[in-house]
Design a protein around this nucleic acid. Sequence first.
RNA 1: GUCCCAGUAGCUCAGUCGGAUAGAGCAACAGCCUUCUAAGCUGUGGGUCGGGGGUUCGAAUCCCUCCUGGGACGCCA
Length: 579
Amino acid sequence: MERFMKQIANSLSKQLMIDESILASWLEIPPNSEMGDLALPCFRLAKELHKSPQVIAADIADALVENELVESAVPAGPYVNFRLNRATAMEQVMRQIRDDDAFYHGAQGAGQVVAIDLSSPNIAKPFSMGHLRSTVIGTAIANLLESDSYQTLRINHLGDWGTQFGKIIVAYHRYGDEAKIKANPIQELNALYVQFHEAAQDDPSLDDEARAAFKRMEDGNEDDLRLWRWMIEVSLEEFAKTYAMLGTSFTHNLGESFYNDKMDAVVKEIQSLGLLVESDGAEVVMLEDVGLPPCLIKRSDGATLYATRDLAAALYRHKDLCADRLLYVVGGEQRLHFEQVFAVLTRMGYDFAKNCKHIAFGMMRLGGKKMSTRKGQVVRLQEVLEEAVGRAKEIINEKNPSLQNADLVAKEIGVGAVIFNDLKTNRLHDIDFSMETALAFEGETGPYVQYTHARSCSVLRKAYLLDAGVSPEQLVTHSQAIAQVDSQTVSLDDPTWELIKQLSLFPGLRNRAIDEYDPSLIAKHVLDICQAFNHFYHDCPILTADEPIRSIRLALTDAARLTIRNSLQLLGIGYPAEI
RNA sequence: GUCCCAGUAGCUCAGUCGGAUAGAGCAACAGCCUUCUAAGCUGUGGGUCGGGGGUUCGAAUCCCUCCUGGGACGCCA
């Protein structure tokens, strides 16, 4: 669609003597497609031309717009509504999809490395629905960036260090039943954590004990570290199952403990720059002048804090991993923390701080309340995924019992439903978890998109074109034939045209999703494409149509299929050819 | 108390760098399978865009203010 706008703006700029790119930015899509395909509001021209918008609109419409893309230009009050020549427009879109890689890919990021901090579950705790958000949003952003030629570093910043492990170790020694824990590590370790917090309410000395236990770990107590390493091992095993189901992978699995030996250098650097000041026994960097509270670097007992760790991690990613840009897909409640970390980096003279961005997202709630591992109020992602896959399997058994690879397809659909449900919603909204909503298979859902994709595959399969597609030459010939024979009455009917227009919006939306780090734009748009395709599918017989309409409809089906598939790929969702 | 995020149909949400009559899905009701996958398609009903001011030819969108919900605010991450 951006291409169409550019072409029309180009013609108009010659006529109006106004810059092409300004005109292109003024062009908009009318609220109702009956009005036209594109519109130019003339309000802003009124001041300059000293005429009413209505008169200007009429003048523009009257002048012959010399552009083969424009079918008609009619004034509608202060607007000029343009109709595009459907065959010409279709030919352009199809050529782009067929010949021009730029439809699905870009080169903006060539030579640039982006580090993405994502997922980051905590060791010895269940992988909850809360961590799903960071995982799927981060993955989709990484996919989007890679589609624009960026190199991405997908870093799983595991929560594997901190006082919480002191707590678990204390609880392990006090209440732990080794056999029970071995049998079901994560659940039992989390139960110990919950038990610790309950006990600590009555006996605050337990907290001191936990801090001491963690200090022992920092000092290298081998018994505690052995237990800690075991917790990491069993947690990673458990997480691996979830990641395998989600189809998520990382380039780096670097927990917080990885930076333990890198923090001294950072603290010394801050100190040597004269930024470190003592405050109430702790060491901080003052950030008052940029409107932020002080950033705590060292506790009064000399221990480091998570800001210190994030500073060390940022420098590692920049210096050792050579990342030009650092993204943090982390919940919105850590906004202030990242503002402080980035401000300290700036203060330290690191220019790359301006390329650091916290990609915040809303909180996953349960029954309106924050999920809490401490209170044991969590929904385990694995349970949700398994439930989703089970339901998908039931539906397949009912609707398509002879389907090959039914288990694999059920997995892709069930998991796709859960992922899509998360991605389609605005990042910053809090989500109150509902099994019913997460597992919906009808309406604006992942399975709806996958169903539409499989439908398009099915048609092409029956035409023996699933992999080959319709040749662009054939398509172009047919489009031109239609244009010549019948440019007035429009052989390309409305449902066909609506689908073409939806497809033409893809490159612009992909760019916007990259600029705004917002995968939901892709999710919402692919729903629009699916709606348009299903409408087209319903109204326009494809296989039984006469030539050249048949070829054109097949080509359009193929284009829709490719665009839906690309969208699902970007979102990290499977796209089975048959469901 | 200060700062940040959110508030649009019964529910979940689009639309938010100002443009025409504010759109989907779910739920409810009514239709469409001898025809390419009915996980689909069509139709009906449903709105003080949280309230109030302001800027503008034009405001859900920008500014101010208030209300509601959530979050953050130094030794947790």
